[in-house]
Amino acid sequence: MVLDLRRQFSTGQRVALVVVGFAAASLGFGFELSKDAVTALTIAGVTWSSLMVLVTVPVALGRRLAVRSAALLEAAGYTPVPDRNGRPRYLPPGGRLPGHGNPFAG
């Protein structure tokens, strides 16, 4: 499912990776445009600030996708159950959590 494949990293982890990546790219861009350290850091800071505004777009779209996918799963009869990290997982209709109940019961 799209919902499960997207959730390898949490939203916070994905944002942290993007922040670090944008910082490195901005520093490279700043020093490529100017050899003066102050000017290069200023360019990098402005570039990084501009790119940080763009981080909100995929986060908002990801939340919309998660809400829409959760509604589809719940409409199909799946039950939301939090995993050990607190993220929602969905059990199929009539499904049980692993390790619960008697495996030999009929």
Rank of each mutant, 00 (worst) to 15 (best):
G21H: 03
G101E: 01
L97Y: 11
A60E: 11
L97W: 14
G99M: 13
P103M: 12
V19P: 06
R7I: 02
A40W: 07
V81D: 09
V19Y: 06
G12H: 05
R7N: 15
F31K: 03
A60D: 12
L41W: 03
R63F: 15
R7T: 07
G28M: 01
Q8I: 09
R6N: 11
T47F: 07
A23N: 07
V15D: 06
A70I: 08
H100R: 12
R87P: 05
R84V: 14
V18P: 05
P88T: 12
A16N: 06
V53H: 00
R7D: 10
K35T: 08
L65W: 03
K35Y: 01
G21S: 09
Y90F: 15
V57W: 15
L51D: 05
A40R: 00
D36H: 08
L41E: 04
A75I: 00
P88L: 15
R63K: 15
V38K: 05
G21T: 04
P82Q: 10
K35C: 04
S26M: 08
E32P: 01
G12L: 08
V15L: 14
R84K: 14
G106F: 14
G106T: 14
L33G: 03
F9Y: 08
F9L: 11
V2E: 09
V55T: 12
G12E: 02
L3E: 01
R64D: 08
R14A: 08
L72H: 04
G12S: 07
A66S: 10
R68M: 09
T42N: 15
L61V: 10
V53M: 01
A70Y: 00
